[in-house]
Write a protein that binds this DNA or RNA. Structure first.
Lengths: 356, 356
DNA sequence: ATAGAAAATCGAATCGATTCGATCGGATCG
DNA sequence: CGATCCGATCGAATCGATTCGATTTTCTAT
């Protein structure tokens, strides 16, 4: 294709005005020709498009569009911490995928944000239309405050009820209680819990007595409460994150005690797999010497021959619901909170405690 | 805090003009007070900030800022297909993490985009400043065309040389040849390759003879070429994606043949693990009956007792380099292409072929 | 042939901020 | 005491498009 001398000049980028001028129409008409809204004769549209091509015009500048329309077409997704950590657990990916499923259809993009210190500015000034808080976010208060002030729709997955925040919930407490009852029914009396982080410090170690006061991570808290509802007292270990190796560490720590538990409830499947690994390394057999329960129901290929007893949560569905909710709110609707239910799955990692 | 009647009215959102008016200063001064650029007396700044608080002003509208500044502070990351698929392989997460590492420091956000059909519009009209193409993108041509027209910096990870696209490369061909030579050195003569997808159709099955013509996925192609450089001819199986189960399928298919190969080169570690699983299921032992080589060097916890022979690529570093490059280009620099090198790691999954 | 309706096009205001050059006041210096 | 200079503040232009109401053109029906 021939380039005119003008077009080849290193002029910045052409804008709609330039295109309109070349086509011999007004800016408004040119805009109409591009957006398709409003009546424009075929001839005019062709002229405009031809002019655009000649100038190598790439279409309306999204930045200007956002300003004028008051919409940027971007939905923020706030992940708890580093991407690395968040994406290590398939459950987060599943949720993200669910969100993308729904929002993608409208052409909205997902902007990844983290709550980490430095990025606070980011969260306050990203050009997004709405936001989804995903993962067991730990210090929501601040984040939500900033976002609320900006007056944008907020959807939170598994967060405590907050004003002007639509929540997509999960029956964490009841589900955990179900797992606990299952173990109780099998005859277990001395159990332990491997928990997800209590707050953002990521400190690891034995679960302190006053966990209910110091914990800020909602999911962790609810799942602990579920176990307490059944067993009252129990010991626990706070893992550094939802990974197999963190679970393994926790497993070692719990199983090396003088009187180790006969069953361990892990707050995620990855943690559970880690515990199983630790048990194996310590020469214990699952479920004969130790019962293990997970949470999430991510059919990990790492489970090997184990069919983990766990609580299957509809992660993708949760993401979808969040996506739908966010889109709905952008449409001006006021969706209602949803609470999803986990399904108990009995695998082959739980059994009656070993006879003494 | 008291709210004035005015502030509680359901007026849209306050803008800088409103704040300036309330503070009794001009818009320009108010802007200066917020941005910190330019000299503003402490008294004035306080006045402005107070007015902002009174109006519940959340700070300058990012959309307007982007327009004026010509920057949105957003870097697009184009992933090959569905998030689900892309994030299943840790190698992609590692790269993304590397990118985030570098770009995050400047407060830039990462916008996730996919190349999937419907989202084409998305890629053409997202308000981003630059873009990183990550993963073995299959149909770059179109995508790059659109982006180039928009005149934004483009960085591609593992893509063929293209004009005005900065590439972050990997020695795929040489590395694959290294793996092949390793097997050859051990005495293997009949090997097979399990490849990543050849193009976006995700069709699976035996590797066709004319792979070099029909394949559009650069990484896949280069790695195949590396093997051909050593073995000349070989059979292969195209996997549906980089997952363990896809590898397992491929493994079954290759190993059930009348004269199965004595060694299999998989184009990713996940595929390799899948092949090993298939071998086990077929009663073969690795490496005695079958040697397996992977690619990537993701120390997966799923490997179990195997120490996979593989090519360790510096994935996070690749991401970092891409992030740095993109930032550099935004600064007006013109970084040079980088080519990373994979390190051959001999694990315990390769051995001489079984004696006949 | 002409009033009236419908279609196409245009002008101008607007979205919300940034930024450059001009202006104004007060302090400094000779 | 007057010229100079500097810091603080302001006006106005600008970024690039969208959109509403007004105007012009085109077509239909009488």
């Amino acid at each position: 294709m021939l380039m005119t001398a003008e077009a080849s000049e290193a002029r910045p980028r052409p804008n709609l005005a330039a295109v309109a001028a070349l086509a011999g129409v007004s800016r408004s008409t040119a805009s109409l020709a591009f957006s398709g809204a409003g009546p424009v004769s075929q001839a005019t549209r062709d002229k405009v498009l031809a002019a655009a091509e000649q100038l190598n015009y790439a279409g309306p500048d999204p930045r200007a569009q956002s300003l004028r329309r008051g919409r940027s077409g971007i939905i923020g997704v706030v992940i708890e911490d580093r991407l690395r950590d968040a994406f290590r657990d398939p459950i987060n990916i599943a949720m993200l995928d669910g969100i993308a499923d729904e929002t993608g259809s409208t052409g909205a993009g997902l902007l990844l944000l983290t709550e980490t210190g430095g990025d606070r500015a980011n969260i306050a000034s990203a050009p997004m239309d709405a936001v989804v808080l995903v993962g067991c976010s730990t210090r929501l208060e601040n984040t939500v405050g900033v976002l609320r002030q900006r007056g944008m729709p907020i959807v939170a997955i598994e967060a405590p009820e907050m004003e002007s925040v639509l929540s997509i919930g999960l029956d964490n407490r009841v589900a955990s209680a179900t797992a606990a009852k299952h173990l109780q029914g099998l005859g277990h009396e001395r159990i332990a819990v491997v928990t997800l982080p209590l707050e953002d410090s990521r400190s690891t170690g034995a679960l302190p007595e006053n966990w209910e006061e110091i914990a800020t991570a909602f999911t962790t808290l609810e799942r602990l409460r579920g176990v307490r509802d059944v067993f009252g007292e129990f010991e626990g270990f706070v893992a550094a994150g939802s990974t197999i190796s963190a679970g393994r560490d926790a497993g070692w720590s719990l199983l090396l005690q003088l009187r180790p538990p006969t069953a361990i409830i892990a707050q995620s499947d990855l943690l559970a797999l880690g515990v199983i690994r630790a048990a194996k390394e310590l020469g214990m057999s699952v479920p004969d010497d130790l019962s293990v329960v997970g949470f999430d129901g991510v059919r990990s290929e790492e489970a090997g021959s184990y069919d983990l007893t766990t609580l299957i949560q509809p992660a993708v569905e949760k993401g979808r619901a969040a996506g739908r909710a966010v889109l709905g709110m952008l449409e001006g609707e006021t969706p209602v909170s949803v609470e999803f239910t986990s399904a108990f799955h009995r695998g082959n990692t739980t059994a009656p405690p070993p006879a003494r």
